[in-house]
Amino acid sequence: MSLRGFHIVFIVFSTLLALGTGAWCIWVDLVEGAPVFLAGAVGSFVAAIGLIVYGVWFYRKMKRLRLIT
């Protein structure tokens, strides 16, 4: 696997981590009663969206530059 392929795999895992962290923050808020973590949940979900957008941009860019075959 090339670096660009591994990078896409990495971004997928990072996105899953961001989604998981967001869910964890909501859990901490609901079960543990720590509203401060709501901001963490919002931040995590925004990061997840950002990573998805970046992943798509990266794939298209690499394809356009013929760095992904």
Partner: peptide
């Protein structure tokens, strides 16, 4: 080196949670 770096970062993706 970038492949190595990605692996190291991927390990952290599991360490953190």
């Amino acid at each position: 080196v970038g492949l190595f770096w990605h692996f190291v970062d991927l390990v952290w993706i599991f360490v953190f949670p």
